[in-house]
């Protein structure tokens, strides 16, 4: 099984829009960003399987076996 990693804005540079990664039990967002070469301070928002929250907390949440994580750098507008 693979999880889906959705990337946005400059996180796509050199990585693409969506990256698939083999699932391993207990894997978290921290494991994902370590693999992608992204650091937590670069991240402004994280959604794991449809749930958002503070970045540090969300990076520690286990991702579901067929789940996804969305990772955003600082973005804003209005």
């Amino acid at each position: 099984m693979a999880i889906k990693i959705k990337l946005f804005a400059n996180f796509r540079d050199g990585r693409g829009k969506i990256v698939e990664m083999d699932y391993t039990p207990g894997m978290t967002g921290q494991d994902v960003i370590d693999d992608l070469g992204i650091t937590a301070p670069e991240i402004a928002a994280v959604i794991v399987d449809g749930v958002d929250g503070k970045v540090d907390a969300m990076l520690a949440v286990p991702i579901k076996e067929d789940g996804y994580i969305a990772i955003f750098p600082p973005v804003a507008g209005g």
């Binding site: 946005f8 804005a9 400059n10 750098p73 600082p74 973005v75 804003a76 507008g77 209005g78």
Partner: peptide, 10 residues
Amino acid sequence: GLPTYGTAVL
């Protein structure tokens, strides 16, 4: 984010 993508980044 804003200079590169504009508000459309939302």
